[in-house]
Design a protein around this nucleic acid. Structure first.
Length: 918
RNA sequence: GCGGGGGUGGCUGAGCCUGGCCAAAAGCGGCGGACUUAAGAUCCGCUCCUGUAGAGGUUCGAGGGUUCGAAUCCCUUCCCCCGCACCA
């Protein structure tokens, strides 16, 4: 990489006032310089870079605050890792297919492609102006044939792997968007379209499905391994997959002999055969007192065709969304496979055809919903499970419980169940499943196969041709991509209206045939885009296998919680399929996931419709990108919601102005420096190291707010240093240098500017992360000692009513006390005093040693390591100026040996003696 | 209902995993002081109660328990937020 040379521009900041710096000039300058030097490029040869990724946006037109937060987090982390010496992969792209583009195109009388590309240009330049450091050479745009041909290619691969299915399916249809919606795109109890809030209807259509259910078990079980993911997301995925272990068993359903149901004449009783039901509680089977079918169960539909009451119920009364369980008696009976009892069969609206088998045995004694239904319909309620008695012997049969008022739904002991009486629920389930001829253990999932067909234009054409003779035929690999035709502005599906495009020849037989006019769900695009960044231009495969195996998985993924289920689950599914069929070495795409919180305004989600939005553009214009970025990251932990605050932004901006002033002033030689190193210099040097130790660990942990607090505090310390002392040039310059580097991941433009002002070579982007000379533990002990000591001095001055202290002595405990403490902390001897006195230099202290030994003995359990005597002495000496400044009196920090013995005797490790002279 | 996450000082919010250094970080608000003609900004303190030498008392939703010791561990209970849900 070529070394960057400072452009021969005029210095872009003039005389910096304390109130402002010329953020626009600074930001433009460095954005240009970064681009010229290509500093964010990740070459293909790089070995296993740290892969940092923000969820790519839908190009809706302009960046909003949610984007800015998402990408600021990602960018700061990427920059931090880069400064730590990692190779970093930090790409960006566009989720460029989707419905809004079609709507926008219609409104503006243009086409989705042009509209989308315009939006992308706008947003890309906004991202540049925010200073996000992406490798734009790896940009992917899903609406280009170069990208979506691989969706089609993958569709073929999935098909070869037996993971594609075409079937007639009832789908969610949004009449307003004129499109099919995934279950996840239907929101709330009212079943509204996620985009336009229109009530969703049902339609039957031929649909293409990806068989994600084939991976249901693995998708569920591997969630346990995703330790870098938030629990909430993991749990949402578990719920979504919804695996349940139970039993399927059949009930023979028939018309009772001789029963008249109003049909013309008595015929042979009809047989409906064995109807399968699923239950998790087969132990309650003897308590089944009715059988219920979903309104759209085949038997229900057959009955509705000839029975007015059933017809009326199925088509008019059934209200699956209501709270009340409703049903109609059919006159049929179902035979309980265990008891042989004939149970009445109902069609009931609380039975759902897509749960279990769409048919269930009703056990009102042990299921709340069945209980409510039975009570309403006058069906018997039989108890067959008793609560497990305290101290139950494992075999005796308990008393039968009363379930007339409420179902008993826990596991317990079987009663009223003949030979199964006295078994616990779990054993009974095993025995019954084995004993009932038609029963089998069964696993049910809530997860459905993924219907990817969309009746829209702006998506990936599904690469299929329909031939009268051959049926649906996949477009051969050599004919890919199937490119979208020109957009036709029409009310229905534009692909249907593209007559010329639609007509083709069957790849199998060569006869005239028509193209599939559906396009793919855009979640297909986003299920593998993170792999495309690895080799974005690759012409013969979706991704370079070897490089993907080296670079994947994504180390840190950042995005909104709204993608907790769909996008993240589909991406996991794709990754597993690619592992099984395309030689990918990884079975999970994202090692660590951060779901960032919302940026709110007055406690409310920012929303265009209500107009309570803050425009990132305005903030950048007014305060600069660095201010916006810093404010966002210091305001809260990244996963939390926080309120946008104009005051907070202003205060952040002032902070950056102060920092600029500080560095400027030094570089201009305006700071009087002292040649000899003093204790104040030591204090500042220590604090610089402290800031490094803490900020580094916090950046690593993505707790930017804590890291930045430390960086900002350091700037404050350096300012007081300049005010109250003649700074030592080395100490001061290192402080400024470190402050700039600690802020560089978050305020990259200003950091570059100040880095240059300090006379450093190269970009701060590429600078090394500073190294700390202390560990965090020591920092914290030191700070605690200083803080406690200062508080003690204040306490004494106040409580003793000392108006004007003349001199303050601070005396560190004698070394033998530190030794005694160390021995005591380590010791588990019964006689601590004895152990201490075994040490000559402690025993020599006589009564003092005995007294201190007593103290140690008393709080023995609470003893822990402290700083050494030397360390305490140094820390207090370095901090003495703080006390001097506060009380305007000289402070003398002494070792015990040099101090007044009476005072020194009061000192203990962690707690120096204090003597204040009035 | 099930599952997940929470309830900390005037507010926001850290600490809780790995109990003691915790009357409990930090910020905001409030109070006092410095600087200033003033305001703003900035800086230095204070901000549970009592206290004439660094002390004592009462606190971390409520109640119980474990422990020498609990904001931190365990049990019970109440409340809040999020996700799923007539799920058989």
């Amino acid at each position: 990489m070529e070394k960057y040379r400072t452009p021969t521009l005029p210095r872009v900041y003039k005389q910096m006032s304390q109130e402002a710096y010329d953020h626009t000039a600074v930001e433009d300058r460095w954005q240009e310089a970064w681009a010229d030097a290509d500093v964010y490029r990740t070459p293909d040869e790089v070995d296993d870079p740290t892969y940092v990724l923000g969820m790519y946006p839908y190009p809706s037109g302009k960046l909003h605050m949610g984007h800015v937060r998402n990408y600021t987090i990602t960018d700061a982390y990427a920059r931090f890792r880069r400064m730590c010496g990692d190779e970093v992969l930090h790409p960006m792209g566009w989720d460029a297919f989707g419905l809004p583009a079609e709507n926008a195109a219609k409104e503006r009388d243009t086409n989705p492609r042009d509209w989308t590309m315009d939006c992308i240009d706008t947003m890309r330049s906004q991202m540049r102006s925010m200073g996000f450091g992406y490798d734009w050479n790896r940009e992917v745009t899903t609406c280009t044939p170069e990208y979506y041909r691989w969706n089609q290619w993958l569709f073929r691969r999935f098909h070869e792997a037996g993971l594609v299915e075409r079937r007639d399916a009832e789908v969610n249809w949004c009449p307003s968007c004129e499109t099919v919606l995934a279950d996840e795109q239907v929101e709330g109890d009212d079943e509204l379209c996620w985009r336009c809030d229109t009530a969703v209807e049902a339609r039957e259509l031929d649909q293409w499905f990806l068989k994600i259910t084939a991976y249901a078990d693995e998708l569920l079980e591997d969630i346990d391994e995703l330790e870098g993911w938030p629990n909430s997301v993991r749990q949402m995925q578990r719920n979504w997959i919804g695996r349940q272990h139970g039993t399927t068993l059949t009930f023979d359903v028939s018309e009772p002999g001789g029963a008249s149901d109003g049909r013309e004449e008595a015929t042979e009783p009809r047989e409906y055969g064995a109807v399968e039901a699923f239950t998790t509680r087969v132990d309650t089977v003897c308590g089944a007192t009715f059988f219920a079918l979903a309104p759209d169960h085949p038997i229900s539909e057959a009955l509705a065709a000839e029975d007015d009451a059933v017809h009326e119920f199925v088509h008019h009364e059934a209200d699956p969304d209501g709270d009340e369980p409703n049903g109609v008696e059919t006159g049929l009976t179902a035979t309980n496979p265990v008891t042989g009892e004939e149970l009445p069969v109902f069609v009931a609206d609380f039975v759902l055809s897509d749960v279990g088998t769409g048919a269930l045995m009703g056990v009102p004694g042990h299921d709340e919903r069945d209980h409510a239904f039975a009570a309403k319909m006058g069906v018997d309620i039989e108890p067959v499970i008793a609560p497990t008695p305290d101290g139950w012997d494992g075999e005796s049969v308990p008393d039968v419980p009363d379930v007339s008022e409420a179902a008993f739904t826990d596991d317990g002991v079987l009663v009223n169940s003949g030979e199964y009486d006295g078994l616990d629920s779990e054993t009974a389930r095993e025995r019954l499943t084995a004993a009932i001829e038609t029963a089998e253990q069964s696993v049910q999932y809530q997860l459905r196969d993924w219907g990817i067909s969309r009746q829209r234009y702006w998506g990936t054409p599904i690469p299929v041709v329909h031939c009268d003779d051959c049926g649906p035929v996949l477009v051969p690999e050599s004919d890919l991509p199937v490119e979208l035709p020109e957009f036709v502005n029409t009310t229905g599906n534009p692909l249907d209206a593209a007559a010329e495009w639609k007509q083709t020849a069957c790849p199998a037989c060569g006869e005239p045939a028509v193209r599939e006019t559906d396009t793919m769900d855009t979640f297909v695009d986003s299920s593998w885009y993170f792999l495309r960044y690895v080799s974005p231009g690759l012409a013969d495969a979706p991704f370079d296998r070897d490089r993907a195996n080296d670079w994947m998985p994504v180390d840190q993924y950042v995005g909104g919680i709204e993608h907790a289920v769909m996008h993240l689950l589909y991406s996991r599914f794709f990754t597993k399929v690619l592992a099984d069929h395309e030689g990918l070495d990884h079975r999970e795409p994202f090692t660590n996931l951060l779901a960032q919180g919302m940026v709110q305004l007055d406690g409310e989600k920012m929303s265009k419709s209500t107009g309570n939005v803050v425009s990132p553009q305005r903030i950048v214009d007014e305060y600069g990108a660095d201010t916006a970025r810093l404010f966002m990251l210091q305001a809260a932990q990244p996963e939390r919601d926080f309120d946008w605050s104009e005051e907070g932004v202003r205060s952040t901006h002032r902070f950056l102005a102060r920092l600029t002033d500080l560095v400027e002033g030094y570089a201009a030689g305006d700071v009087a420096t002292g040649a000899d190193r003093t204790t104040v210099d030591d204090y500042v040097a220590d604090e610089v190291d402290a800031a490094v130790a803490i900020a580094g660990a916090e950046y690593d942990d993505l707790t930017f707010n804590v890291a930045l607090r430390e960086a900002q505090a350091l700037v404050g310390t350096l300012r007081s240093y300049r005010e109250h002392a003649d700074p030592h040039p080395e100490v001061y310059e290192r402080g400024l240098d470190v402050a700039v580097r600690l802020l560089a991941p978050v305020t990259p433009h200003l950091a570059e500017e100040l880095w240059e002002t300090l006379g450093r070579d190269g970009f701060v982007v590429a600078a090394d992360w500073p190294a700390a000379a202390v560990d965090r533990e020591t920092v914290e002990r030191r700070r605690r000692l200083v803080k406690n000591t200062r508080e003690d001095v204040r306490d004494i001055v106040e409580v003793a009513g000392i108006d004007d202290p003349e001199r303050i002595d601070v005396v560190v405990a004698p070394d033998w006390k530190y030794d005694a403490l160390a021995i005591a902390a380590d010791s588990d001897a019964d006689n601590l005093i004895g152990e201490l006195m075994a040490e000559d230099h402690i025993r020599e202290q006589g009564d003092a040693a005995a007294a201190y030994g007593q103290d140690l003995q008393a709080e023995r359990e609470a003893l822990s390591e402290t700083l050494s005597g030397d360390e305490e002495y140094e820390a207090l000496r370095a901090a003495a100026w703080l006390i001097e400044r506060e009380f305007d009196a000289p402070v003398v920090v002494e070792r015990a040996g040099d101090a007044d013995p009476d005072t020194a005797a009061q000192a203990a490790p962690g707690r120096p003696a204090i003597d204040i002279a009035e």
